[in-house]
Simulated assay, not measured.
Amino acid sequence: MSGAALNVLIVGAGGIGGYYGARLADAGHNLVLTARGRHLAAIQARGLEVMVEGETLRCRAPAVDHATLIRKHRTTDFDLVIFTLKSTATKQVLKELGSWLAQGDVPVLSLQNGVDNEVLIARRLGEARVLGGLAVRIGGHITEPGKVRAEGVAQVVVGGWPCMEQSHDCRRTVLSRLKKVFDAASIPTRVSDNIRYELWRKLVINNGVNPLSALTGLDTRSLTHHPDFSRIVHGMMAETVEASRADGVNLKSQDLDEMYELIRSFNAIKTSMLVDKEKGRPLELDSISGAVLNRCQKLGIDAPYTRLVSALLRVEGSQRL
Rank of each mutant, 00 (worst) to 15 (best):
L6F: 11
V130T: 07
G12P: 03
E165F: 08
T173V: 15
D276S: 04
V158L: 15
I195D: 01
I187P: 02
D193P: 01
A185W: 02
L218Q: 10
G14K: 01
V8F: 08
S310Y: 01
I70D: 05
R221T: 10
E49C: 14
L31W: 01
L175N: 01
R137L: 14
K277G: 00
G317I: 13
V148N: 02
G280W: 14
L212R: 08
H226N: 08
T76P: 05
K86R: 15
R320K: 15
Y197N: 11
V11L: 11
I269W: 12
D65Q: 03
T56P: 09
D65C: 04
L24V: 12
H29R: 07
G18T: 09
K298I: 02
V157Y: 06
A42L: 10
E96Y: 08
V136G: 07
G15H: 05
G217P: 09
A67P: 07
V106R: 07
A303M: 00
S213P: 06
H225N: 10
T76F: 07
I301E: 02
L31A: 06
G248E: 04
V174S: 06
K86E: 12
V52L: 12
P62I: 03
D26V: 13
V209M: 06
E118G: 10
L251F: 02
H141R: 14
V275P: 02
P162K: 02
K72E: 15
R171V: 04
S287N: 05
N250D: 05
V50D: 07
P188I: 03
R307S: 03
V81R: 07
T143W: 10
L299C: 00
M273K: 00
T240V: 06
H39I: 06
V241N: 00
L97S: 11
L308F: 08
A4Q: 13
L312S: 02
E118S: 11
I301D: 02
L24T: 08
N250S: 05
G248Q: 04
L131A: 11
T173Y: 13
L212S: 05
Q44F: 12
L223R: 04
I142T: 01
H141W: 11
N294Y: 10
